[in-house]
Structures are given as structure tokens and as C-alpha cells.
Amino acid sequence: MNSGKMGAAGLDQEIGYNPILTATVKNEQGVRDVGTLSEYSLQGSVKDEFVEDVKNRLRGLCDNVECEPFIDHEISYSLQSSSGNAVTMRVSRSLAQSKMPWQLKYVGALETGKNKSCLMRNQVTVGCSENVTSFLTELGFRADTEFLSKGYLYRKGRIKVVLSKLCKMKEPGQHQEQNLLPLTKSHLVEVSVTTLTGGEDPGPDLKHFAEMLKPQVKLTKVDHREIQSHTRPNF
């Protein structure tokens, strides 16, 4: 075999693989990333003693499949620049399905404009290996909060409905039942649709679904920044 010829020919040929092109789409304004999705949501809560009513209601409203129980462990990490700007990343993993990859999630600022019918925030979710926590710590991120979300997932078409109880752990990393402390006396109810950024607004669909859940749950645009700025006991 003539190695010289083969080598020269091999290097001149185009490989036909370019991960940058597969990961991004170029437009006139430059490179636009396609990994960013927009999550539209409405949120509400229900007292623990009325959860069964909500479950029954959701069973009737949602797709005719069994709801999916889940237990997710979530840790949020933040990084602050010298100019005072901060970025928050969330790391979550499923405790119910231990073989699922961990997730690294960026969640953008909440948009609650008056002309919007529901909450909107940009997000990028990436599946990753389990050492993501040590990677973030090495990079300079600091762990902020840690909690456990335990509940059920329902679906109606593209609408995702989450009925969950938020708990904190008595000791970090100890997520056994006896080490969990409920954060509130109520369950969180969240209906959401995730679409490509810039796509059609699914707000009317969510509003319609929220109407059907009344009066058991009142789903609204909850601006967390307002809640954080007001001291509310037992919240």
C-alpha cells in the first residue's frame, strides 16, 4: 500500500461532521443556539388534606395513562461575578429512577409581563454524568439550596402537570423518608408547556386547563420575587 498517497488524500477530504453546525443554527444576526427552550407555566398550591381531590380531578382531566410518581433531588448553585452579577444553575437527579442521568439546568429570569397570560422563563437542560456537582464546585460555583420534590406527573397532550410536595433534608444528602421535613403544609401544583424559544405562545391552552381545575386549585402567574420580598410566615 502507498501510505503517502493515502495519507494526503485522507487529510484533504472533508469529514462531513461538524458538531457546531449540529448544535447551532446560523441566522443573519449570528449564531443562535437551539438548545434554549421556553417554559410557560402557571402555579398554585393545595392544602395537604385536599390533595386526593386534586388527584381525582387530574385523573379525569389528563391523558388516560397512569400518573408517574417521582422523587427528585435538586441542588441550586450560584456564581457571582466581581461586578455583582450572578448566575444560578440547578442540578437535579431522580431518586425514583437511579439509572437516569443527572440534569444540569439553567433557568433564566422570570418574565411576568402584563401582556403575558402566564409565566415565561428560558431554560436549557442538559443530561450529564453524576460528577457534575464536583465539576461546578471546581469551577467556582457555590451550593445554595437543596430540596427534595416528591409527587406525581400527569400529562395532557403537551401540557405537563406536576403535583409535588417540597421537602428539605435534616442532613445534606440524606434523603430517606425519616430524614425529610416538609417545607409547607401544602402541595405545589404547576402546569407547564415547554416550547422552542420564539415559538407560538401556549398561554391560552394553559389558561383553559387552569379554568378546568377550579375550584380545587387556583393556578395563577406567581411572581416569586414578590413573595421573596414580603415576609410571609409559614410559607
Partner: peptide
């Protein structure tokens, strides 16, 4: 400290 991620990692790094 080497992590393996899915390809949307590029979009996350943009943020």
C-alpha cells in the same frame, strides 16, 4: 472532574 454532557451543553455555556 471531567463531566460528560449531552450536546445542548454548548447552549448552556452561551448563558
Amino acid at each position: 472532574s471531567c463531566i460528560q454532557c449531552d450536546s445542548p451543553m454548548e447552549s448552556l455555556l452561551v448563558k
